[in-house]
Design a protein around this nucleic acid. Structure first.
Lengths: 317, 317
DNA sequence: CGCAGCTCCGCTCATATGAGCAGACGGTTT
DNA sequence: AAACCGTCTGCTCATATGAGCGGAGCTGCG
């Protein structure tokens, strides 16, 4: 594997040939003519140069995306997209900013005029849309109601409106909370014209960005906004993750419950029909939630940071 | 030239493809199948990966040979061999040791049983033979008489004998000084059986290692050993280098003179007939001598250190 | 010696690859 | 709307390349 060349002259020759081939881009035939060797000899010297480590090939780039982790995450979990931002940042707000930036670039890249974009309410999604600089002209559909929190200025409606304006496409949005105390209220809200219209567009959504929470205190804005009873009930049902209002257990199976009816959001079946669903998880507390979300097949794109990506890959080993 | 990829997803894709291609050694066709792309797309992404700097290819090795300088020296001066040892060493003795080691490895590598090896007397050549560990079975021919100096233990004879013993081939050696005060003495010496026999083998020598001095005090053991008159006379004739007793001017033209007749050594014509003649120059004072020696075509192999190599290349620019 | 085992070489032939072309698309200008 | 331009795509076909073969030369062993 690593027995370097046979002598200094051959070493120099091999290096010269390697430079001609790899750096100057000449063909082996040309090189063979130049050095008065057979093309086979050239090929063998080049093989040797590679296997001896004389020629080293590195893949890296100046930005902060960890290409290797991204690719491994993508392959390991069978994802359509995986972007791992290489950062040691731990502050959630700063992390959201960085991941939001990466997600924004991703969205700009992958959304074409044929798409219909769905956006769920989540702080990470807001961080993304805030940093969106351009987007193909597409309809933008609001996928969930909003939660009002003191630490968040933008709501689900603003998020959608802003994105649609940037895109130049129509916005399908509505004013409603993500979760209400009674199922009947939720049903009534779904009847409202704007809500019904948005829901009517769920089927045509081709790409969506959703929130992803771990079903535990402080790991999901939905958990924190819900009454204790509901939280516990879902936990008893094995829920480990909420994907913008869709609850899934550790095996990735969506969980139906009375609580589900109280949520104004896209449901599991509709989400499953969407071609690409991207989540932006961060924080090591979300390892299991991500795993469940990916297993469910509902989420097939991930934008995250390197510590979480590593944790996800480590546990697989 | 350096505009990196278009978006993060493409970046990750390109990196994955680059890894498959360059690291895993898969063909573009295989990669195309794997990623559901056309082979053209794969080729284009790979081109982009190269030109954007995503894929970097380095040629280097753990040893102390500067491959790039070696190759450039070889190409620039049209040399058959060039080995540049990368070392900051300035002490002549230590430098001789390092260059001798490299030259020994070179000799081991390039000498085959079909060769006839010629060795001139020089401290650098001694440093080489001292570090020879193996050599194909070849006749070894002494090319010059010896100079006895207080700081040198081995003489030309020992040098040849030692090498022949290592090789297992016959030695053609003789006891005579490199230079004598009178041309008649030199002629007489050349008539001696051993000397004549060695000289008789000059024509069959195929590879030789010679000394190379700059024609100035302290830059050539021959200069230092000669009478002042002779030195000056040669200098007036434009001599800038002595190649184991062969004097050449700045243009590389061998200089004949009365002094030449006093030297017991291979002559310019005979040296010119040798396929490979390797010198081991060191010290920045020898820049012009090396240039002259190479220009003459008499020397077509160089083993040297990086500062001298750089000086040689710099002056060309 | 003479022969097995080795490395190294250049060959054939199937496959991979590159150069350059033409169609498709999106965006812009008349 | 029509014409245009730049970009991106996949194609054809000539060329480059890889896999694997058999021969030459060297080495060590019986």
């Amino acid at each position: 594997m690593e027995p370097i060349a046979g002598g200094p002259a051959q070493l120099v020759l091999t290096a010269s040939i390697a430079r001609r081939y790899y750096v100057d881009g000449r063909s082996k035939v040309e090189i063979a003519d130049e050095f008065r060797l057979s093309r086979f000899k050239v090929a063998r010297l080049l093989d040797q140069a590679r296997s001896s480590g004389l020629v080293r090939i590195e893949i890296s780039h100046p930005g902060n995306v960890d290409l290797d982790l991204s690719a491994r995450l993508q392959e390991t979990f069978g994802l359509r997209r995986a972007i791992v931002v290489d950062t040691p940042e731990v502050d959630p707000a700063a992390l959201r900013l960085q991941l939001g930036k990466a997600a924004a670039e991703l969205l700009t890249e992958i959304v074409t005029t044929d798409d219909v974009l769905g956006l769920a309410w989540a702080r990470a999604v807001t961080a993304m849309t805030d940093q969106l600089t351009s987007l193909a002209r597409v309809p933008v559909v609001q996928l969930t109601g909003a939660l009002s929190r003191p630490d968040v200025e933008a709501n689900s409606v603003e998020l959608v409106r802003h994105t649609a304006r940037l895109s130049g496409g129509p916005a399908y949005l509505f004013y409603a909370p993500l979760v209400v105390p009674e199922a009947t209220t939720a049903r009534a809200l779904r009847q409202q014209p704007e809500v019904a219209e948005a829901i009517g567009h769920f089927d045509s959504v081709t790409k969506a960005v959703v929130g992803l929470g771990s079903w535990a205190p402080g790991q999901s804005t939905l958990y924190d906004a819900m009454d204790e009873n509901a939280c516990e009930q879902l936990q008893r049902r094995g829920v480990v993750a909420d994907i913008s209002g869709v609850f899934v257990d550790a095996k990735g199976v969506p969980v139906q419950s009375k609580v589900t009816d109280r949520v104004i959001a896209i449901n599991a079946e509709q989400m499953n029909a969407i071609d690409e669903v991207i989540a932006i998880p961060y924080g090591l507390g979300k390892v299991e939630a991500v795993r469940a979300a990916v297993r469910s097949g509902l989420v097939n794109g991930i934008v995250t940071h390197s510590p979480l990506a590593r944790a996800l890959l480590d546990e697989v080993t």
